[in-house]
Amino acid sequence: MDKNAKGIELLQQGKVEEAVQIFTEAIEENPTDPVGYINFGNVLMSVGDPEKAKRFFERAMEVDPEAGAAYYSLGTLHFNQGDYDHAKDQFERAITKGMENADVHFMLGMSLSQLDQPKLALPYFQRSVELDDQDVEAFFQLGLSLAKVEAYKEAIAAFNNVLSLDPEHADAYYNLGVANLVHESNTDQALAFFHKAIELQPDHELAQMGVATVDMIKKEESE
Protein backbone atom coordinates (compact mmCIF):
# COMPACT_ATOMS: atom_id res chain seq x y z
CA MET A 1 0.00 0.00 0.00
CA ASP A 2 1.46 3.39 -1.00
CA LYS A 3 1.56 6.24 1.46
CA ASN A 4 -1.38 8.14 0.03
CA ALA A 5 -3.57 5.05 0.27
CA LYS A 6 -2.28 4.38 3.79
CA GLY A 7 -3.01 7.98 4.78
CA ILE A 8 -6.59 7.73 3.51
CA GLU A 9 -7.05 4.50 5.47
CA LEU A 10 -5.79 6.20 8.64
CA LEU A 11 -8.06 9.18 8.04
CA GLN A 12 -11.07 6.88 7.67
CA GLN A 13 -10.11 5.32 11.00
CA GLY A 14 -10.12 8.77 12.61
CA LYS A 15 -6.34 8.80 13.07
CA VAL A 16 -5.89 12.35 11.78
CA GLU A 17 -2.42 13.06 13.15
CA GLU A 18 -1.02 9.83 11.76
CA ALA A 19 -2.67 10.54 8.38
CA VAL A 20 -1.10 14.02 8.32
CA GLN A 21 2.32 12.50 8.96
CA ILE A 22 1.90 9.98 6.15
CA PHE A 23 0.68 12.62 3.66
CA THR A 24 3.59 14.87 4.65
CA GLU A 25 6.02 12.07 3.88
CA ALA A 26 4.28 11.38 0.56
CA ILE A 27 4.69 15.04 -0.46
CA GLU A 28 8.34 15.14 0.62
CA GLU A 29 9.13 11.95 -1.28
CA ASN A 30 7.26 12.93 -4.43
CA PRO A 31 6.69 16.72 -4.57
CA THR A 32 5.53 16.58 -8.21
CA ASP A 33 2.59 14.28 -7.43
CA PRO A 34 -0.62 16.30 -6.85
CA VAL A 35 -2.28 13.50 -4.90
CA GLY A 36 -0.37 14.17 -1.71
CA TYR A 37 -1.33 17.85 -1.74
CA ILE A 38 -4.96 17.02 -2.42
CA ASN A 39 -5.08 14.49 0.41
CA PHE A 40 -3.40 16.89 2.82
CA GLY A 41 -5.88 19.59 1.81
CA ASN A 42 -8.79 17.24 2.43
CA VAL A 43 -7.45 16.53 5.93
CA LEU A 44 -7.18 20.25 6.66
CA MET A 45 -10.70 20.79 5.36
CA SER A 46 -12.04 17.98 7.55
CA VAL A 47 -10.49 19.51 10.70
CA GLY A 48 -11.85 22.99 9.96
CA ASP A 49 -8.90 24.82 8.40
CA PRO A 50 -10.25 25.82 4.95
CA GLU A 51 -7.68 28.55 4.26
CA LYS A 52 -4.72 26.19 4.58
CA ALA A 53 -6.66 23.50 2.70
CA LYS A 54 -7.21 25.92 -0.18
CA ARG A 55 -3.48 26.53 -0.46
CA PHE A 56 -2.80 22.81 -0.75
CA PHE A 57 -5.45 22.38 -3.45
CA GLU A 58 -3.99 25.31 -5.37
CA ARG A 59 -0.52 23.81 -4.99
CA ALA A 60 -1.82 20.55 -6.46
CA MET A 61 -3.15 22.52 -9.45
CA GLU A 62 0.24 24.18 -9.92
CA VAL A 63 1.97 20.79 -9.87
CA ASP A 64 -0.59 19.29 -12.26
CA PRO A 65 -3.14 21.64 -13.88
CA GLU A 66 -5.05 18.55 -15.11
CA ALA A 67 -5.64 17.12 -11.61
CA GLY A 68 -9.43 17.06 -11.60
CA ALA A 69 -9.60 15.94 -7.97
CA ALA A 70 -7.96 19.19 -6.86
CA TYR A 71 -10.71 21.25 -8.51
CA TYR A 72 -13.34 18.96 -7.02
CA SER A 73 -11.93 19.36 -3.52
CA LEU A 74 -11.68 23.13 -3.89
CA GLY A 75 -15.27 23.15 -5.14
CA THR A 76 -16.33 21.21 -2.05
CA LEU A 77 -14.54 23.73 0.14
CA HIS A 78 -16.38 26.63 -1.51
CA PHE A 79 -19.69 24.75 -1.27
CA ASN A 80 -19.23 24.12 2.44
CA GLN A 81 -18.62 27.84 2.89
CA GLY A 82 -21.82 28.71 1.04
CA ASP A 83 -19.95 30.16 -1.92
CA TYR A 84 -21.99 28.28 -4.52
CA ASP A 85 -20.94 30.36 -7.51
CA HIS A 86 -17.24 29.59 -7.04
CA ALA A 87 -18.11 25.99 -6.13
CA LYS A 88 -19.94 25.64 -9.45
CA ASP A 89 -16.90 26.94 -11.33
CA GLN A 90 -14.56 24.44 -9.68
CA PHE A 91 -16.85 21.45 -10.22
CA GLU A 92 -17.18 22.44 -13.89
CA ARG A 93 -13.38 22.57 -14.15
CA ALA A 94 -13.09 19.16 -12.50
CA ILE A 95 -15.36 17.70 -15.19
CA THR A 96 -13.48 19.43 -18.02
CA LYS A 97 -10.25 17.97 -16.58
CA GLY A 98 -11.67 14.49 -17.03
CA MET A 99 -13.27 13.76 -13.67
CA GLU A 100 -16.30 11.60 -14.38
CA ASN A 101 -18.05 10.17 -11.36
CA ALA A 102 -21.43 10.53 -9.69
CA ASP A 103 -20.14 12.80 -6.93
CA VAL A 104 -18.82 15.62 -9.11
CA HIS A 105 -22.01 15.73 -11.17
CA PHE A 106 -24.11 15.66 -8.02
CA MET A 107 -22.17 18.50 -6.41
CA LEU A 108 -22.36 20.60 -9.56
CA GLY A 109 -26.11 20.00 -9.61
CA MET A 110 -26.32 20.98 -5.93
CA SER A 111 -24.38 24.19 -6.56
CA LEU A 112 -26.71 25.18 -9.39
CA SER A 113 -29.71 24.23 -7.28
CA GLN A 114 -28.48 26.47 -4.47
CA LEU A 115 -28.11 29.25 -7.05
CA ASP A 116 -31.80 28.72 -7.90
CA GLN A 117 -31.04 27.36 -11.36
CA PRO A 118 -32.97 24.06 -11.34
CA LYS A 119 -33.14 23.79 -15.12
CA LEU A 120 -29.36 23.94 -15.37
CA ALA A 121 -28.97 21.55 -12.44
CA LEU A 122 -31.15 18.86 -14.04
CA PRO A 123 -28.64 17.28 -16.47
CA TYR A 124 -26.05 16.95 -13.70
CA PHE A 125 -28.45 15.19 -11.32
CA GLN A 126 -29.54 12.97 -14.21
CA ARG A 127 -25.93 12.10 -14.99
CA SER A 128 -25.28 11.46 -11.31
CA VAL A 129 -28.03 8.85 -11.04
CA GLU A 130 -26.88 7.29 -14.31
CA LEU A 131 -23.44 6.77 -12.77
CA ASP A 132 -24.81 5.62 -9.40
CA ASP A 133 -28.36 4.30 -9.47
CA GLN A 134 -28.29 3.57 -5.72
CA ASP A 135 -27.84 7.18 -4.61
CA VAL A 136 -31.00 8.13 -2.73
CA GLU A 137 -30.10 11.81 -2.32
CA ALA A 138 -29.28 12.22 -6.01
CA PHE A 139 -32.68 10.84 -7.03
CA PHE A 140 -34.35 13.10 -4.45
CA GLN A 141 -32.56 16.22 -5.70
CA LEU A 142 -33.40 15.21 -9.27
CA GLY A 143 -37.05 15.01 -8.26
CA LEU A 144 -36.94 18.44 -6.60
CA SER A 145 -35.38 20.04 -9.68
CA LEU A 146 -37.93 18.40 -11.97
CA ALA A 147 -40.76 19.66 -9.77
CA LYS A 148 -39.33 23.18 -9.79
CA VAL A 149 -39.45 23.25 -13.59
CA GLU A 150 -42.97 21.77 -13.42
CA ALA A 151 -41.99 18.44 -14.97
CA TYR A 152 -44.26 16.71 -12.46
CA LYS A 153 -44.62 13.36 -14.23
CA GLU A 154 -40.85 12.92 -14.29
CA ALA A 155 -40.57 14.25 -10.73
CA ILE A 156 -43.04 11.61 -9.53
CA ALA A 157 -40.90 8.91 -11.17
CA ALA A 158 -37.79 10.26 -9.44
CA PHE A 159 -39.47 10.34 -6.00
CA ASN A 160 -40.71 6.79 -6.56
CA ASN A 161 -37.10 5.81 -7.26
CA VAL A 162 -36.19 7.37 -3.91
CA LEU A 163 -38.80 5.22 -2.15
CA SER A 164 -37.67 2.06 -3.92
CA LEU A 165 -34.24 2.66 -2.34
CA ASP A 166 -35.45 4.10 0.96
CA PRO A 167 -39.10 3.25 1.78
CA GLU A 168 -39.01 5.48 4.87
CA HIS A 169 -38.01 8.72 3.14
CA ALA A 170 -40.59 11.13 4.58
CA ASP A 171 -39.65 14.04 2.30
CA ALA A 172 -40.17 11.88 -0.80
CA TYR A 173 -43.72 11.08 0.37
CA TYR A 174 -44.37 14.76 1.04
CA ASN A 175 -43.17 15.78 -2.41
CA LEU A 176 -45.21 13.03 -4.02
CA GLY A 177 -48.18 14.51 -2.21
CA VAL A 178 -47.45 17.94 -3.63
CA ALA A 179 -46.93 16.57 -7.14
CA ASN A 180 -50.19 14.63 -7.03
CA LEU A 181 -52.05 17.65 -5.70
CA VAL A 182 -50.63 20.12 -8.22
CA HIS A 183 -50.20 17.96 -11.31
CA GLU A 184 -52.85 15.28 -10.93
CA SER A 185 -55.38 17.25 -8.84
CA ASN A 186 -55.73 13.99 -6.94
CA THR A 187 -56.55 15.13 -3.43
CA ASP A 188 -57.10 11.62 -2.06
CA GLN A 189 -53.71 10.38 -3.25
CA ALA A 190 -52.02 13.57 -2.11
CA LEU A 191 -53.60 13.21 1.33
CA ALA A 192 -52.41 9.62 1.61
CA PHE A 193 -48.83 10.70 0.83
CA PHE A 194 -48.96 13.57 3.32
CA HIS A 195 -50.24 11.24 6.03
CA LYS A 196 -47.48 8.74 5.25
CA ALA A 197 -44.86 11.49 5.59
CA ILE A 198 -46.31 12.42 8.99
CA GLU A 199 -46.42 8.78 10.06
CA LEU A 200 -42.70 8.52 9.33
CA GLN A 201 -41.88 11.98 10.71
CA PRO A 202 -44.58 13.27 13.10
CA ASP A 203 -43.09 16.78 13.19
CA HIS A 204 -43.10 17.19 9.40
CA GLU A 205 -44.62 20.67 9.28
CA LEU A 206 -44.87 20.87 5.49
CA ALA A 207 -46.78 17.60 5.34
CA GLN A 208 -49.09 18.87 8.09
CA MET A 209 -49.70 21.99 6.01
CA GLY A 210 -50.39 19.72 3.04
CA VAL A 211 -53.07 17.89 5.00
CA ALA A 212 -54.64 21.20 6.01
CA THR A 213 -54.60 22.36 2.39
CA VAL A 214 -56.32 19.20 1.16
CA ASP A 215 -58.90 19.42 3.94
CA MET A 216 -59.66 23.01 2.93
CA ILE A 217 -60.01 22.01 -0.74
CA LYS A 218 -62.34 19.16 0.17
CA LYS A 219 -64.41 21.45 2.36
CA GLU A 220 -64.77 24.02 -0.43
CA GLU A 221 -65.76 21.29 -2.89
CA SER A 222 -68.46 20.01 -0.55
CA GLU A 223 -70.06 23.42 -0.07
Rank of each mutant, 00 (worst) to 15 (best):
D49S: 14
L77E: 00
G68H: 08
S128V: 06
H78D: 06
A5F: 13
Q21D: 14
H183K: 00
V178K: 07
I198V: 12
A157G: 06
T76C: 14
M110L: 15
D132T: 04
I27P: 05
Y173C: 06
Q134R: 15
Q90P: 08
D171F: 00
K219S: 13
V214N: 04
Q189Y: 08
L11V: 08
V178L: 09
Q189S: 10
Q134D: 13
A147W: 01
N42K: 11
V35Y: 11
A26T: 07
S111T: 04
L115E: 12
Y173V: 06
R93T: 13
N30T: 08
H169N: 10
L115Q: 12
A87V: 01
D33R: 00
E184P: 03
A121V: 01
N186K: 00
N42I: 04
E18M: 07
F193S: 09
P31H: 03
S73Q: 01
M110S: 15
S73T: 01
L200C: 02
V178A: 05
R59D: 11
A158Q: 05
G36K: 01
Q126G: 08
Q13C: 02
L200Y: 02
K119L: 13
N101K: 13
H204K: 06
S113I: 02
I8P: 08
K148I: 07
A138W: 00
